[in-house]
Design a protein around this nucleic acid. Structure first.
Lengths: 203, 203, 203, 203
DNA sequence: TATGAATGAGGGTTCATTCAT
DNA sequence: CATGAATGAACCCTCATTCAT
């Protein structure tokens, strides 16, 4: 029975991976459930044993990828040994921008959701994985750096939205500034934003 | 002769309005060209005399609405008599947030495009109206206030993206903060951003 | 298990037969896929499970019918016991003309392709059946009669084109001569053509 | 009023020429009446003032082109000064093959009708031009050469069908022999055919 | 569980034809 | 005569979903 379970897990993963490939390469609306099933090597009907419809599998993919994404960034940060708070945020920013540059199809695909929505709906509703939510990691990190952020969740919100939406425009369209420029500008802006939220507690 | 022209204009407007209603109430992909034509009171084939396809009419709608939107805000600003630069930006921010609060379907519809993309593609490509692009208004406004902004277009980009993406999350989902809170936060953050871009020139 | 296969074969045949009926009675361009599916008793979508489009099913029909046609003629020839080469060609000619007379819709339908094109594209590309191509039969027949034909394929080409195109005009329009007359004329002309190709080798 | 007449004639010719260009370059079914009218520089409704529908204009074109075609060949023959009957037929054959080689789109377009059908339906029904039918020219030519052909119309029928149908296969598909080869073969076959019809009278 | 043949509604699009101007 | 906007039937094709096996 462990075997049967394994088999199911394999099929599910196969569907998820295939769907991701197709969504990023051809777009959501140009990908049919037939396509996914065919390339995943299962029958069309089988798809429905695992997912409700195309949007269901999309949500699972976004949740999975976004989580991976932020957690990768965070893991790298820890390896870097950076201890200063602002520096660590900038490190994360660069890491995320670099990763998005190298994976434009992913960016194009999840951009509408690569934002606060990721943390809200995707991660909460669909959570089946065994990962620690990024928000928790973030809060922990604040503490680790010995920084007291007033409303850290809100600050995270602003950072995520700012970075996510400008990255899309810059990386996908190169407009109005290319990714290199974007980095420089964000490095100028983000310290101000952090200061706004850490000064608050002192006021 | 003017009659035929007028008639065409009427039909075109009817299609645009109907499409907007349907797009905002049912979503883009749930709206068919049949629906639009039917409710606009024209034959299906007539649609194709005016627009290439669904995406064509969508672009026209976005261009039109966005233009209206920003120009309304700007017109109000001028009526307000505000002369301080930072204050005027905050006024525009509030105005835009208020307007979006009162028109959630519009926000939901154009949110993916209510961003720098609006200025880039929608407004530039589809421009058939005789309006002044918002960017020009903005540049003029900087001068009028006697403020020297280093790279004003880039600053506008960051402001638009920040406001647009946070507004969506806040207004549509009330998460992680309600619109009232959002305003307060933006009022704290925006002056810092402006300072970053106006200090540059002094440095 | 055999049942499903059988069922599919039945549906496919039903579609082919229905399409043939409609094509011959109404013409290709006046027959829609809807028509075919409807009269074949299957859903429209089902058509596309078996054929790519209207031209695909047409090619299959032509291939099938032509094959049947020539092979019937050849089988009859063998039953006839004729051994003389020229006589056998004339026998085939008569057989083909008789068959076409009795099946005018077929003639009208495939006349544009009842020519060398049949051997080239239709029979070669669409071949899924397990029949021996007519050219091979023809070559074998030359040997069997002990006749050495210089370029037998080319001679076949001329015969097929001559018979096919004159048959169409004569049988369908009775112009400029009726089928009976046509036979007589061909009986006068064909021996000369054969002589031209068998004398070559002697020259 | 001569002017109005002229204008009409111009429009009609413009439609015919445009339709011919489009039919040969894109095919009949891929050419719409809109296309024709647009490129001919007249309004869509105007088309219907001159032709009943697409098939009507096609028939006129075929009649016109075929007539031109054969008459050109005949005119050239007369310029050539050839007096021998068989030679003159071979001259016409070559001339026709050369002309078809140089105008493949025309061949592809009228091939279904470039046969006896041309003389029968197209020329008879649609005749509005002021030309002498080719059959008459041909009969006259037989006399001029002092040759007595038994049933000259029938012989012409066989020649036209043989040349027309083999030319199509050879020139358009190069199969089973290229046009150069075709000429050689026809030069071998045609004298035999002529002999068959001129010997008849002697028999 | 898994299959994949069958469905049929529904989408986008074209275009011959009409008719008021 | 000429126009060209409007029509709407008809077409092709896709695809999510079902269900008998």
């Amino acid at each position: 029975m462990g075997k049967a379970e394994e088999n199911k897990k394999t099929k599910r993963d196969s569907l998820l991976n295939t769907a991701f490939e197709l969504f990023t390469s051809q777009g959501l609306s140009n990908t049919s459930i037939s396509d996914i099933a065919l390339r995943a090597g299962v029958a069309k009907g089988t798809f429905y044993l695992y997912f409700k419809d195309k949007y269901d599998i999309r949500n699972h993919i976004i949740a999975r990828k976004s989580e991976q994404f932020f957690n990768n960034a965070y893991a790298d940060l820890q390896r870097s040994g950076i201890t200063d708070y602002t520096e660590s945020i900038l490190f994360l920013t660069d890491h995320i921008l670099d990763a998005l540059c190298e994976n434009k199809p992913l960016l194009a695909f999840i951009h509408k959701d690569l934002s606060w929505g990721v943390f809200r709906s995707a991660l909460e509703n669909v959570r089946t994985e065994e990962q620690v939510p990024f928000q928790q990691l973030f809060l922990q990190h604040c503490k680790d750096c010995g920084v007291e952020v007033e409303e850290p969740e809100v600050m995270l919100f602003f950072l995520v939205e700012l970075i996510g939406s400008t990255a899309y425009s810059s990386i996908i369209h190169g407009d109005p500034i290319p990714p290199e420029e974007l980095k420089k500008h964000l490095h100028k802006l983000i310290p101000g934003i952090i200061k706004t939220y850490t000064q608050d507690s002192a006021q």
